[in-house]
């Protein structure tokens, strides 16, 4: 008969631990580095939006001064979009449920599952809040300024092609990463909650 207590004791005694001393300072340093990286990413997103928005706002102002109302409308639309994108990203990150690692595993997995599905959905819907408004604004501005010339049609086609490609790539990432992870978590939740047979 196997002595489980003995196995347990052997297990606890047997592991040769890493001799590397655990430095609190190094953990704190890593934490600080990662937080700085996140702040920089957020700052960069906002900065790009804040740089683009005034450019289109000024373009809209100039168009209004020349009584070119249609180009002004599209330029204003692009300025608003440039401000909306960083705000949208900021809001979504804050609305994303955080899986708190100090919670019991089952709660943690459920929160992770919800977060994973939300992230997948955000990527799948990128075309709605990012690509489509950008394409409408840029193509609209091009046609309203240049008229229906061949170059404008080529530009519009290239722009649309690029947007479709980006949308498909994001959809692919959502389905091959986030939704796959969500399924894995769902499987783990199932393993954890299924009624064990005695």
């Amino acid at each position: 008969m196997m002595d489980w207590n003995q196995i347990r004791q052997q297990w606890q005694d047997g592991e040769a631990c890493s001799p590397t001393p655990v430095s609190v300072a190094s953990v704190q340093r890593r934490d600080k580095e990662l937080r700085t990286q996140v702040r920089h990413r957020d700052w960069l997103e906002s900065a790009v939006g804040l740089l683009i928005a005034p450019f289109f706002a000024v373009a809209a102002g100039i168009a209004v001064a020349h009584d070119a109302w249609l180009p002004a409308l599209f330029a204003a639309f692009l300025a608003a979009w440039a401000l909306y994108v960083p705000w949208h990203l900021w809001r979504n990150r804050r609305l994303l449920p955080q899986a708190e690692p100090g919670r019991p595993l089952l709660d943690y997995l459920r929160a992770s599952h919800t977060a994973m599905l939300l992230q997948a959905r955000q990527l799948e819907q990128l075309w709605r809040w990012y690509l489509a408004p950008c394409a409408i604004g840029v193509i609209g501005l091009t046609f309203s300024v240049r008229g229906p010339v061949t170059g404008a049609f080529f530009y519009a086609a290239a722009m649309l092609g690029f947007c479709v490609l980006v949308a498909l790539l994001n959809k692919h990432v959502a389905q091959t990463q986030f939704r796959v992870h969500a399924q894995q978590i769902e499987q783990q939740i199932f393993e954890l909650t299924k009624e064990p047979s005695a």
């Binding site: 196997m2 919670r103 019991p104 595993l105 909650t193």
Partner: peptide, 28 residues
């Protein structure tokens, strides 16, 4: 194997102690 009691394991996993006990018996 880390020497945790069933109740503690249940608390870590978010399950009942009974569910943990059944799983442990099966695994052993």
């Amino acid at each position: 194997l880390e020497g945790m009691e069933r109740e503690q394991i249940a608390d870590v996993l978010g399950l009942s102690a009974n569910a943990v006990a059944i799983r442990m018996t099966r695994l052993r």
